Amino acid sequence: MNVDFVDSAAVQDLLDRASGVRTEGGDARIKAITRDLIEAVMRAIVKYDIDESEFWRAITFFQNGAPEFGLIAPGVGIEHFLDLYMDAKDADAGLTGGTPRTIEGPLYVEGAPLVEGEVNLTDDADDTGTLIMNGSVRGPDGEPVGNAIVHVWHANSKGFYSHFDPTGEQTPFNNRRRIRVDSDGRYSFRSRMPNGYSVPPGGATDRLMSTLGRHGNRPAHVHFFIEAPGYRTLTTQINFGDDPFAADDFAFGTREGLLPVPNRQGDSASIAFDFRLQRATTEKDEGFSSRTRATA
């Protein structure tokens, strides 16, 4: 059947009624978005002749896979698309420069210790080498941002994050800190070397990637939020440029300008990386997205 079936009076009437666009009350923006999303699903059903059993198997997949939505969203490119869309809007507004943004991922935990000076991120024993990372936070004119806070978090050598570790062996803020930079905008930390990892074997994301003929691996990487009054909050991460998955990250988190190659010495390494912030144009720019985040 042709997808024009969705344009029929009966289906268009159903869309209006289901989305509430004809009723009083409610949120007009949410109604319009809901209508378009439902219509897109209907068009896909007709285009690919999705039968009833296929539809309900898909619903079951999403119901059972709900705990992994934070992985599925980057895995199918939606989270990276949001970055591309924000980049395009910035370009249209004449906002250029700064360290590239990239995906946050689902594994941030609020309330990490606020520290300063020479910082050690790792609280737990980990049989691997040392990562040393340092650099500065600067504004668009190269000025040091001496009141910045650098939020940093990464996995351990097994590819597990504290708070989300299936072994239950890590303390809540292992490899997690908020670092107050010095007056010159400089930060420095050491930790035990993180490794790349794959999505949970046999989970919803793994099954979806297998169905798409894709893998679920990420390169070794370190996540950051950078916040400072008067500047746009930056969400980004650096990915180890010599990792075999640096050019094939299942979550599309690798971007040009975010791929430093570590200076390796045995199983240890050092990375120098400077962050460049953009100036805030609204109060909203200085905040974080309203994404739900874990607390410990």
Rank of each mutant, 00 (worst) to 15 (best):
R291D: 06
P244F: 04
N195S: 15
I271A: 07
E118S: 12
S157A: 14
L212M: 13
A112S: 12
I78H: 06
N156V: 04
P140W: 01
Y161P: 01
L131A: 13
D27L: 14
R29P: 00
F160R: 15
P113D: 08
R264Y: 04
E116Y: 05
G216T: 03
G139Q: 00
P100G: 12
R207L: 15
M42C: 13
I103Y: 06
Q170L: 15
S270P: 06
N195E: 10
H151E: 11
K158L: 15
E116D: 13
G203F: 01
E24V: 11
Q265P: 02
I78W: 10
P144F: 08
R29N: 04
I38P: 03
V119H: 03
V119E: 00
V119D: 00
E283S: 14
V3D: 06
V181D: 00
L107V: 09
E52L: 10
D90Y: 04
G135W: 03
A112Q: 08
F240K: 06
D127H: 09
I226S: 05
N2W: 02
Q237H: 07
N2M: 07
A272G: 08
T281F: 12
G257I: 09
V181F: 07
S136N: 07
D206A: 14
R207P: 03
N195L: 07
P200E: 11
I271V: 15
T281H: 14
N217W: 12
I50V: 15
A269K: 03
Y231M: 13
S183F: 05
D83T: 14
E104C: 08
N195R: 11
R218M: 12
G94H: 10
H154M: 03
K47W: 08
S8C: 12
E286L: 12
K158Y: 09
S270N: 09
E54R: 11
Y197E: 01
E110V: 10
D274V: 09
G105F: 01
T130S: 03
W56E: 10
G213R: 07
S290R: 12
F189G: 01
G142R: 08
A269C: 03
T60I: 06
V150W: 01
N156M: 06
P200G: 05
F252E: 10
T102E: 11
G94T: 05
G75T: 04
W56H: 14
V3F: 02
